[in-house]
């Protein structure tokens, strides 16, 4: 029984997977997303733990009624927006062209195989 989301194909995917361009694509993708995921999770949980266990520090006023807690909270918004923008620009520049190249190559192979 096969997955109907998987169309039959005659391409040798193990060969494609081992090919240098694909290896490069996979490396670029993982070397970008995993460290970044680790970083934002650490930053998020540092913030959550500070809010839970260091409320006095978070309550330190900075300017008027605005305290460190609010600034760090707004900082979470800023980093979320920044990581989003960074990833999109990275994917557009470094991932999409290479993926399109490999995809075109695979489609050409499929054409020959038929």
């Amino acid at each position: 029984m096969s997955n109907d989301a998987r169309a039959a194909s005659r391409i040798d995917f193990e060969k494609v997977e081992a090919s240098p361009p694909f290896h490069d694509l996979k490396k670029r993708h993982r070397a970008f997303v995993w460290p970044l995921t680790g970083a934002f999770l650490v930053w998020y949980f540092a913030y959550v733990l500070l809010a839970s266990y260091a409320p006095d520090f978070m309550a330190t006023p900075v300017w008027g009624n605005i305290n460190i807690g609010l600034l760090l909270g707004l900082g979470q918004f800023v980093t979320t927006f920044a990581i989003t923008t960074w990833y999109v620009s990275f994917a557009n520049r470094r991932l999409d062209p290479l993926a399109a190249e490999i995809r075109a190559d695979l489609e050409a192979q499929e054409g020959v195989a038929r």
Partner: peptide, 28 residues
């Protein structure tokens, strides 16, 4: 403040979807 704390979790969560899940799910 604790209500605000709640909303931050709901937002930051989208980075997991963006970086690790959305595109790969769509493709497969």
């Amino acid at each position: 403040y604790d209500g605000f704390l709640y909303s931050i979790g709901f937002l930051v969560a989208w980075l997991v979807a963006l970086l690790l899940v959305a595109e790969l799910m769509r493709n497969t």
